[in-house]
Write a protein that binds this DNA or RNA. Structure first.
Lengths: 121, 121
DNA sequence: ATAAACAATGGACAATTGTCAATGGTTTAT
DNA sequence: ATAAACCATTGACAATTGTCCATTGTTTAT
């Protein structure tokens, strides 16, 4: 599929998609028609971009994702990168982030209750 | 307390603390000694900065925090800003972020298990 | 066949969240 | 009294994560 369709399906901008591709998060092929320079994105890119969005939400940076993806793809360049250790570390980080967010959420709810009590607020 | 002690207690850099103050997240007073320009930070600033850290972890931006804090302090400048509505919206956002992170966490764990199975990986 | 929509590329620009370095003054420990 | 450590201010710099614009070429709808 071409970038416009991909953009529409993912609600990302073309520029964002190109940005991700420049950074190695997704890939494309030269496309059937030889006359143009249009790129062709595999269908799975839609889900891949959805996954990237969730990863970012969970605190992954672009460069972390790039590294991780390059490893999973076997296009590994970085020697001495332990994917499983990386995953374990990131799992711990996300768990921690969730725990902290939940605690903060409690504080937010308490603040809201306090504001709702006009005598104390 | 002076900025150095505050920095030490919060493990933030002096520059970060000044950055937050410039942005209205914390405040300081001119300090006792009249001869210098050293600022004096109230003790509660330690907890305030801890709270700010948690808020950022949960997805609050500096400007959101500045707005919110200015409202709680009554130093409101923005008319038509509904603190309770803001809180409610942010609570929803954090809840959503947590839910998504938990889902993503499952995916991460599944990936790790898959990698740990050498035949399938 | 032609205008409108789409695509690629390159580089500039922007918001956010800090960090660093220079300068000049103050406090504290020795 | 003097060096080391501290502080304020200013402005430059930097990483991250995109967005926008100009240019040029291609495809598609009319």
């Amino acid at each position: 599929m071409r970038i416009g369709e991909l953009a529409e399906r993912t609600t990302l901008s073309r520029d964002t998609i190109r940005f991700y591709e420049r950074n190695g998060l997704i890939h494309s092929a030269p496309g059937e028609a030889s006359s143009n320079s249009y790129r062709d994105y595999p269908d799975e890119t839609v889900e891949r971009l959805a996954m990237i969005r969730e990863a970012q939400n969970a605190g992954f940076s672009i460069s972390e994702l790039a590294l991780f993806i390059s490893q999973l793809e076997g296009s590994s360049v970085e020697a001495g990168f332990d994917v499983e250790a990386f995953l374990e570390r990131k799992i711990g980080e996300v768990e921690d982030k969730i725990r902290r967010s939940e605690k903060f959420l409690d504080a937010l709810r308490a603040t809201k209750r306090a504001l709702a009590r006009p005598d104390t607020g």
